[in-house]
Simulated scan of single mutants.
Amino acid sequence: MNLRPLVSLLLAGAALSAAPAMAQHQGHSMPMPAPAPAPSPAQALQQSDPHAGHAMPDSPAASDDKTVDPHAGHAMPEGSMPAPDAMAGMKQETMDHSTMDHSTMDDAMPASPGPEMETPPPPEAGSGPPRAADAIWGADAMRASRDDLRRESGDFPVFWFQGDRLEVHAREGAEDYIWDFQGYYGGPTSRFWFKTEGEGAFGDKPESAEFQALYSRAIRPFWDLQAGIRQDLAGPDTTYAVLGIQGVAPYLFQVDAAAFVSQRGDVTARIEAELDQRITQRLIFQPRVEINMAAQDIPILGVGAGIDKVEAGLRLRYEIIREFAPYIGIEQTWRIGNGADFARARGEDPSATNYVFGIRFWF
């Protein structure tokens, strides 16, 4: 069958039906819109972002590539963001501080007070007269103020008393007691100093007892020069002139040394040294040594020439309060040379070990 005549007929009918619609626009010149180009991938992402076109605050950079950048699609000013390769080099361990300008940082930081405090005083400091106020107010008016200043700075009298040893010596077949007290009244540089010590057996009179009255004068920090008299209150009546020194030696050794000259011309000396070793805040360990010497034999006193007697002891005390401390210890006594012979002549053992119980107090 031949279809060509049928197709020609259908095309002619379609052209006749479209002729009236085209006749309505005859004489009009209307531009036809160009077809819209296909959007790029970036524009498509921007159209899907609800924040597109909004100014967003700065936020930290993403820690990895999977995090979506909130600034995607925004037009950023040129130079406001560093290049990606520059950001990669800004890790702390890879930053080159030698290329950074620290001068502005130093200006912003406050200055340390150290250099100002260590700055020496100006040359004119202390160059004025020592009593410049006297020229204005007069010496009489300033004398009372100057005395008040000395008193407020520590130049005032103080009373101090200490029972250094009040103890019982126990040994095989005998027990005896010992006291050793001292104290002073006065200011920081000059004082009246008193000392007393002695020993005896329980139930008997004291075997030895003495009292010293001394004037003490500071000769250097921690050291006093002392001079005065000593009176023996037990045994032969003897009076001594005393010259001594007392203070704190290096490493905190308490030292008391004195020479004695009796009215008979006998010359003796005594050196005492002790050291407080603090184990705790209240427990103190104290080694102590005492050496007695004489320039000649003194038969009336039972004292031999040279080193006559040595005492060495260890004491452990506990401070219940700072002013009161019981203690225990052990002490060894030796009589040496002619002193040992005098001891044997009186029926005494020249060497003795004593167990010590006592208290130490002060106020």
Rank of each mutant, 00 (worst) to 15 (best):
R4I: 13
L9F: 13
L11T: 09
A15L: 15
Q24E: 13
H25C: 13
M32L: 15
P33Y: 01
A36E: 11
A38C: 11
P39F: 03
P41Y: 01
D49M: 01
D49A: 00
H54N: 05
A55L: 10
A62I: 03
D64R: 04
V68D: 15
P70M: 07
G73M: 04
G73P: 05
M76E: 03
M76L: 14
E78A: 14
E78G: 12
S80I: 11
A83N: 09
M87T: 10
M87F: 08
A88D: 08
A88C: 02
Q92E: 13
S98K: 14
P110V: 10
S112L: 07
M117S: 07
E118C: 05
P122T: 12
E124S: 13
P129I: 06
P130L: 09
R131C: 08
A132D: 13
A133R: 08
D134W: 05
W137S: 13
W137E: 15
D140M: 09
A141M: 05
R143F: 06
D147P: 06
D148Y: 08
R151V: 08
E152A: 14
F156N: 12
F159N: 07
F159S: 14
F159R: 06
G163Y: 01
G163V: 08
E167F: 08
E172A: 07
E175P: 05
D176N: 12
D176R: 14
D176L: 04
D176T: 06
Y177I: 00
Y177S: 01
Q182H: 09
G183Q: 03
Y184Q: 12
Y185E: 06
Y185D: 06
P188Y: 00
R191D: 02
R191Q: 14
F192D: 05
K195R: 12
K195Q: 03
T196Q: 02
A201Y: 14
E207W: 01
S208I: 02
A209N: 08
A213I: 07
Y215R: 12
R217Q: 15
A218W: 02
A218L: 12
I219N: 00
W223E: 03
W223G: 09
G228T: 06
Q231A: 05
Q231Y: 08
G235H: 04
P236L: 13
L243G: 14
Q246G: 07
F253D: 01
F253T: 05
A259H: 01
F260T: 02
V261Y: 09
E272V: 12
E274V: 10
D276R: 04
D276A: 11
Q277T: 08
I284W: 04
Q286K: 11
A295S: 09
I300V: 15
G302S: 05
V310E: 00
E311G: 06
A312E: 09
G313P: 00
G313R: 00
R315K: 10
I321K: 11
E323D: 10
E323I: 05
P326D: 04
I330L: 09
I330F: 05
Q332W: 15
R335M: 02
I336F: 03
G337Q: 03
F342G: 04
R344A: 11
D349K: 13
P350H: 02
A352L: 12
N354Y: 06
Y355I: 09
G358W: 02
F361H: 00
